[in-house]
Nucleic acid binder design. Structure first.
Lengths: 150, 150
DNA sequence: CCTAAATACTTGCACACGCAAATAGAAAGC
DNA sequence: GCTTTCTATTTGCGTGTGCAAGTATTTAGG
């Protein structure tokens, strides 16, 4: 097996590791957030994204990018959260095709309740993952990840 | 904001980066494998896992772990692949609860056809991701990931 | 102006998933 | 040996998702 073949195998192995770590974190967050505040991970992601805008609103499209979801899934995700009165749709005047979403007070309150659960779970899972030799290098690399632009 | 708060934010940011990279790779693989050989990523994962056993068989449970899927999803995934004659179920004699799965020649042939697509796509996507400053550190860390046991 | 193309979001539909219950077989207790 | 318990897999059911088509609104062309 030559050097090129090795590189292919290393990439495939790295991808399996990445997928394993991602799945581990996501399932733990899902369990923790679900039982504590009845939120899925994507739902928390929406609340978190809206909150990081701090009082400002986001278009559906931005939400779709933030959650890595299709437009249709984004619509229904926002529907669910709106039905629970955690956010509101706001038609914007300048482009009447666009729809802004904004956290309600209830949404902000639930987010404040969910965030410590989220952060503690993440800390715990990353610590556990860091103890597994095959996951550790990827976990450590996360510390150096720069903020994602807008 | 203190040091502890920073650590929380760094972890959250790292998790968002990890999720973004995972989503990027998965969607590209999905597209490439889907259009070329009509396989989803999980379906390819099964074929790949069975092939790495090289002629040996795997239990449903092992497959569930390899794909990070629930038992029920594993059953239906194997059903789909069996319906396409890519693998066969084999009842094992020593523990008659257990069911082994094994690649058929057709399954092995399709896998051989899919692997280059998979590997080339992975190489291309990782190269693209490596060019994005916020993803690069995680991509680089994948090279050092050791083989996963079992 | 008025039509044609592009954009933003929503809806119909099919499908893959997880959870909980069902089935079947093995292992343990006595 | 027979019941209890545990393990491996499958099925019923509800739900979230993507794709493709539909609707509404903006922008570009003539």
């Amino acid at each position: 097996m030559g050097i090129a073949d090795d590189a292919v195998e290393v990439r495939a192995q790295g991808w399996r590791t990445l997928a394993a770590l991602h799945g581990l974190i996501e399932s733990e967050l899902e369990r923790a957030l679900g039982s504590a505040v009845d939120l899925s991970v994507v739902e928390y992601t929406v609340l978190d994204a809206l909150n990081r805008q701090d009082g400002w609103h986001m278009r559906m499209q931005q939400l779709a990018r933030a959650t890595a979801l299709s437009p249709s899934a984004t619509t229904r995700l926002v529907n669910r959260l709106e039905d629970r009165a955690l956010l509101t749709r706001i038609l914007c005047a300048d482009d009447r095709r666009g729809i802004y979403t904004e956290l309600t007070p209830a949404g902000r309150a639930l987010y404040e309740r969910a965030r410590p659960i989220h952060d503690e779970t993440l800390e715990r899972v990353l610590a556990e993952a860091s103890a597994q030799p095959e996951l550790a290098p990827v976990v450590d690399a996360l510390h150096t990840a720069a903020p994602v632009a807008g």
